[in-house]
Design a protein around this nucleic acid. Structure first.
Length: 419
RNA sequence: GUGGCUGUAGCUCAGUUGGUUAGAGCGCCAGGUUGUGAUCCUGGAAGUCGGGGGUUCGAAUCCCCUCAGUCACCCCA
């Protein structure tokens, strides 16, 4: 709606107002708590990086080649808004060379220039965890389980964990050859889109949702048959580990993810109620080799990113993690001149309580209405009588019980009523 | 980037085969005999009917363009 001249949030972005904004923040807090209790430390990186940082992620990655916000500074530097968090964190790892294993978590906005949709925005928030410096499969278990426990903590039940083993980089060419051979023999049965994809990145063809490709994809060779013995053994250990934690999963041989740096353990969390298309609420995997790509020493690593917006949508689907109803403890009604409300609010706030008030000397009825709408359980009322007596009326808005207390006893009596 | 659908007050929506001053509910504001809220009653403010152009005596209602939203593809969180 809205008229021609009015401004609005740019395409694909939106404003979050209360209570949705608060809800998103609380979701991040739940994650932060879990991550920090798991030994991950908060790392904050810039929202933009040298363009090359992301270009290293791979030429076959759409996120990098066609969806990035790139720009040039006045000084001539080529920069890009981050399309994902892992690259930035790995870059930070390389730059600071911290002791390993390095356990980092972060939350922040990413930017991708693509057609918006429900659950898909040009600016979207993710929470993220990276564990860099160990190839121990137990680390894989810990990371995957952390994601699972997070969804559990929110109350989500209909999340499906898909797991796959993409093998080592050295295994990849043999599998790709096999894939090409498989599809090349049936080219005309393949959709036009998929034929193009086949040239750029054969793996991605496995991800096609076009019905005409279904049969061919189903018959395609499975990557598990092409991975090294070490990778296969590690994958078994990961599965055993997850079972020991009662984290349910489904091995999905055709799980291919959009970032090309993934190796070995790769996974995705799908919101079952979200419909077929934007159902990925989170995903990640191992990226042995990425640290090297970004100029560091050969170092293994694993991590994931979980979408805040989509996770919240999944919560809506299941009716869990409801939006909070933020409310102050006390609403101060002042029908004298408004200055009593200012003083009382200050006093209440300094004592640690939450207090709000009305403005512009509105009628008592109007102020009481505000008090009710504020959600505050209590109201403090100051009128001419109280002003003259040095008292205030304290009203319990839940029970409509009201009493008069000395001006100096306000905080104490409020405390009593709240407990 | 490609295709389908949608676009009326802050929100959710009505608006007959185009015809006088565009409606409802919720929300908001003000009252209901001078101090008290979530109920009830009354009244009020608020819409260039997404924007632009066209057809017509006349369009929110028909046509074109455009913008935005939405769904699917692509891809992903």
């Amino acid at each position: 709606m809205a008229a021609g001249r009015s401004f609005r949030a740019p395409k694909g972005t939106r404003d979050l107002l209360v209570p949705e904004s608060t809800r998103a923040r609380r979701l991040v807090e739940v994650f932060a708590d879990l991550a920090e209790r798991s030994g991950f430390g908060l790392v904050v990186t810039p929202m933009f990086e040298e363009l090359d940082v992301f270009l290293r992620l791979g030429e076959a990655t759409d996120v990098v080649t066609k969806e990035m916000y790139t720009f040039e500074t006045k000084g001539g530097d080529r920069l890009a808004l981050r399309p994902e968090l892992t690259a930035s964190l790995v870059r930070a790892f390389v730059q600071h060379n911290p002791p390993t294993p390095w356990k980092a978590w972060c939350a922040g906005f990413n930017f991708r220039y693509e057609r918006p949709q429900k659950g898909r925005y040009r600016q979207f928030e993710q929470v993220d965890v990276e564990l860099i410096g160990t190839a121990d499969p137990q680390a894989d278990v810990e990371v995957v389980a952390l994601g699972w426990r997070f969804y559990e903590a929110l109350g989500l039940r209909r999340v499906a964990l898909k797991l796959n083993d993409l093998g080592d980089r050295a295994d990849r060419p043999r599998y790709l050859d096999a894939l090409r051979a498989h599809f090349a023999g049936n080219l005309d049965a393949l959709s036009e889109q998929s034929r193009l994809t086949l040239e750029k990145n054969p793996l991605r063809v496995l991800d096609s949702k076009r019905p005409e490709d279904a049969d061919l994809v189903a018959a395609a060779p499975v990557i598990g048959d092409y991975v090294s013995d070490e990778s296969a053994a590690a994958f078994v250990e990961v599965q055993v580990g997850l079972r020991a934690l009662d984290v349910p999963f489904t091995v999905t041989p055709r799980l291919v993810r959009g970032l090309d740096y993934y190796t070995r353990t790769t996974f995705e969390f799908a919101g079952v109620g979200l419909g077929a298309s934007q159902d990925a609420v989170g995903g990640g995997g191992r990226y042995d080799g990425l640290v090297e790509d970004l100029g560091g020493p050969a170092t293994p690593g694993i991590g994931f990113g979980l979408g805040v917006d989509r996770t919240l949508l999944a919560c809506d689907e299941e009716g869990v993690f409801p939006a909070p109803a933020p409310a102050v403890d006390v609403f101060v009604v002042d029908v004298v001149d408004g200055s009593h409300a200012t003083v009382l609010c200050d006093e209440l706030r300094r004592s640690g309580l939450g207090a709000d008030r009305a403005y512009e000397g509105r009628s008592m009825k109007a102020q009481m209405k505000k008090a009710g709408a504020s959600g505050a359980p209590l109201a403090v009322i100051v009128g001419p009588d109280e002003d003259a007596d040095g008292t205030v009326a304290v009203r319990d808005l839940r029970t409509a019980e009201q009493s008069t207390v000395a001006r100096g006893d306000v905080v104490e009596s409020i405390r009593k009523l709240l407990s």
